[in-house]
Design a protein around this nucleic acid. Structure first.
Lengths: 180, 180
DNA sequence: CTTGTATACTCATTAATTGAATATGGAGAA
DNA sequence: TTCTCCATATTCAATTAATGAGTATACAAG
C-alpha cells in the first residue's frame, strides 16, 4: 500500500494541459489530442485508453468529472482541472526532460504547451533543456573516453553523441526563431 | 482466435540470437542480455519478464525447453533454438528497421549480432539501413515543404530531420570503419 | 428509407509487468 | 564455527495496462 505520489506520464500531463482552456469531455479531448498538426504527431491513443487515463487523473485528484445529461443525446462526462492538477501541470511544463529518449515525445509535448503559453515560457524551457543537453554531451564524451575504440559501446555512444549534438543544433536554431 | 503469425519484438529476437551459440538456461540468458557492454546498454529486463518472453517463444515454436536436474542445485530449464527460430532470427537480422524511433534499440540490437557474425553481415545491414534512412530524409523534407514555416509540425519535422541526418552521418562513419 | 458516420462512453477480455516466494550452496566475516 | 550475505534458477499470484467490441442516438447523404 505504499502509494506515494504517482508521477503521471507525459501524455496525462498533456491531457491536463488541454483542460486549461476550460472543461472538456472525453470525446472532445480525444479529438484534440489526436490532432495531426499538434500532439497527434507525438502520441496516438485509443478512446478507451484515454478514458482510462482520465480515470487515473481523477483518482489522483488532478481532475474532477461531472455527468451532464444532454437528452436525448448521450450524456457527457465533463472533466475539469483542479487546483492540484493545474499546479502539477505547470511544474511539469517548467522542467526539461532528463534523458535523450524522452525528447521525441515528452519534450515536444512540453514545447507544444510552452509555445502556446507565450514566448517567454518557451524560451525558458529551451534554455533549461540546452543545459541538460550539454550535460548529455559531456557524459557521452566521458563514456567515449573510457570505451575501447571501435568496441560496441564506443560505437553506440558515437551514435548517441551524434543524436544529442543534433538536438543541440536544433535547440539553438529554435531559440533564434523565438527572439524575433 | 485470429492468431496469425506473431511478429516477436526485437528483444525476443535478441534472445534467439544469444541461443545461436548453443543452448542456455534462463538465468544465463538474463546475465548475457544484461551485460552492460552489450545489449544491456539497450534494454533492461527483469528475470520474470525474461521467462515470460521465453515462454512465448516456446509457444511459437522458436525455442524448445528441457528441464535438466542438477541435484542438489535447483533444476535448470535449458532453452534451445529450433530451425524455425533460427530462420526468423536471420530474417530479422537481414532487415533494416522501418522507423527512426526503432533505431536506438532495434537497429542497434541487429547491429550487435550482425557485427558478431562477420563484417559482411554488418556491412549489408548498414547498407540497407542507409537506403531506408535516405527515404526518411526525403519524407521529412516533403513534410517540411508542405508545412507552414514555424508551425508546430514544421518545428517538429526540423528536429526529426536533424536526427535522421545525424544518423546518416553516423552510418557513413561506421561503414568506413568496416572497410579496413 | 436506408446506409453510413459522428457523438460519447463503458466494459469484459487479454496481455504485460511487478515483486515476492522458493530453496540451496558457497564465500567471507565474527 | 556460525552467521550473514550473495549467487544460482525459476515460478507465481496480483496488479496494471491495452485492446476491441458493445451500446445507443442523431443527422446527413444517397
Amino acid at each position: 500500500m505504499c502509494s506515494m505520489v504517482r508521477r503521471p506520464p507525459g501524455i496525462e500531463l498533456a491531457l491536463l494541459g488541454f483542460l486549461l482552456q476550460g472543461p472538456q469531455h472525453g470525446y472532445q479531448l480525444h479529438q484534440i489530442i489526436s490532432d495531426l498538426s499538434g500532439l497527434g504527431l507525438i502520441w496516438r491513443l485509443k478512446q478507451s485508453q484515454l478514458y482510462a487515463l482520465l480515470n487515473k487523473l481523477e483518482t489522483d485528484g488532478f481532475v474532477i468529472s461531472t455527468i451532464k445529461n444532454q437528452d436525448p443525446h448521450p450524456p457527457r462526462r465533463i472533466f475539469e482541472l483542479t487546483e492540484s492538477g493545474r499546479r502539477i501541470f505547470f511544474a511539469w511544463l517548467a522542467d526539461p526532460v532528463t534523458a535523450p529518449r524522452l525528447v521525441r515525445q515528452d519534450f515536444f509535448a512540453k514545447l507544444y504547451f510552452a509555445a502556446r503559453e507565450n514566448k517567454d515560457t518557451a524560451r525558458r524551457l529551451i534554455e533549461l533543456q540546452r543545459i541538460v543537453c550539454q550535460s548529455w554531451i559531456d557524459r557521452f564524451n566521458e563514456k567515449l573516453a573510457v570505451s575501447e575504440q571501435a568496441s560496441y559501446s564506443w560505437t553506440m555512444y558515437q551514435y548517441r553523441l551524434g543524436q544529442v549534438k543534433a538536438l543541440q543544433s536544433w535547440l539553438d536554431a529554435y531559440e533564434k526563431t523565438l527572439s524575433t
